[in-house]
């Protein structure tokens, strides 16, 4: 039965998928990959400074020794990330909706939301973390938390919400106005049209760019180290200070890679799936 296979390969060629050319192209890909990375390894390991680099960055012993401490500190990165992510999703959606409500009455709200997104996209994340982490507790307002975890999360939420709000807003604007007209024509109110018709479509479309922002957020949790908490990066600094060997930094990098790569692959997969769906729907 050659037919289904042919059909499959023609289809994926249209989609530009990676498996389009069959066994021959897989072989070419494997060979060129091996040759490329082989050359890179040869080049690096024959460099004059390689023995020194190998000793101070790739020490197996140091790696085994430092990994448990760094990994347990990495738990804090994950907690920072998870708490911040949930808050960002909610707060950014609120900002995006505020920027999208029409009518002159809501102009002050739109202005405020716009000023917010402009402000927090222009200040470097590190500065926001410093200002909040060192500034806010110094105010000594009773009832205001002083924990660096709290202020670290707050800083990340403030900064990332500005970006994520723009992503949401692009999604809202990508929903055709006729959808709102259809919803309103049925007697749904403006907020109902937004909630049941526009936002669900908008959010679905922006999931890939949202995930992309969250990959950035995962990495930026390391910046919270600057105001005190011992997360993975800080933990590796401590290890390095004790041993004068840089391998712990590599261990930390590895942990971030293990967290990020699956998310990046998942994002790509989602994008590819959306594209397939759109092609399928468009071809009808």
């Amino acid at each position: 039965m050659p037919e289904p296979a042919q059909l499959g390969s023609r289809r994926s060629r249209i989609l530009g998928g990676p498996r389009s050319e069959g066994a021959r192209s897989t072989l070419i890909a494997v060979v060129s990959t091996v040759v490329f990375f082989g050359l890179v390894v040869l080049l690096v390991t024959n460099a004059p400074g390689w023995p020194e680099v190998k000793r101070s960055f790739f020490s197996g012993e140091q790696f085994r020794e430092s990994l448990p401490d760094i990994a347990s500190a990495f738990g804090l990165n994950i907690r920072l990330f998870l708490v911040a992510e949930v808050l960002i999703l909610v707060f950014a959606l609120l900002l995006a909706v505020l920027r999208s409500v029409p009518g002159p009455v809501f102009f002050p709200l739109r202005l405020l939301a716009t000023a917010y997104t402009d402000l927090f996209r222009s200040i470097p994340t590190v500065l926001v973390i410093y200002i909040l982490g060192f500034g806010a507790p110094t105010l000594q307002i009773s009832g205001l938390p002083t924990s660096p975890f709290f202020w670290g999360v707050t800083a990340l939420v403030l900064v990332y919400s500005a970006y994520v709000a723009e992503v949401y807003r692009a999604g809202i604007q990508s929903v055709h106005p006729s959808q709102e007209a259809a919803a309103r024509s049925l007697g749904l109110s403006q907020p109902q049209a937004l909630r049941f018709v526009i936002l669900p479509q908008a959010v679905r479309r922006v999931v890939p760019p949202l995930l992309n922002d969250f990959i950035g957020l995962q990495k930026d949790t390391a910046l919270v180290a600057l105001i005190g908490p011992v997360e993975a990066f800080r933990a590796s600094q401590i290890e390095v200070a004790g041993s004068f060997n840089y391998t712990p930094y590599l261990a930390t990098a590895l942990l971030f890679i293990l967290l990020t790569v699956p998310m990046a692959r998942f994002t790509d997969w989602l994008i590819a799936r959306n594209r397939r769906r759109e092609l399928a729907a468009g071809g009808r």
């Binding site: 006729s178 007209a181 919803a183 007697g187 749904l188 109902q192 479509q201």
Partner: peptide, 22 residues
């Protein structure tokens, strides 16, 4: 152009306004 809600089933399209508006 029909303007059905693409993210909802036929039944959800038809029941949305009766449920939410009525």
């Amino acid at each position: 152009a029909f303007n059905l809600f693409p993210h909802m089933s036929v039944l959800a399209n038809v029941t949305l306004a009766p449920r939410r508006a009525l």
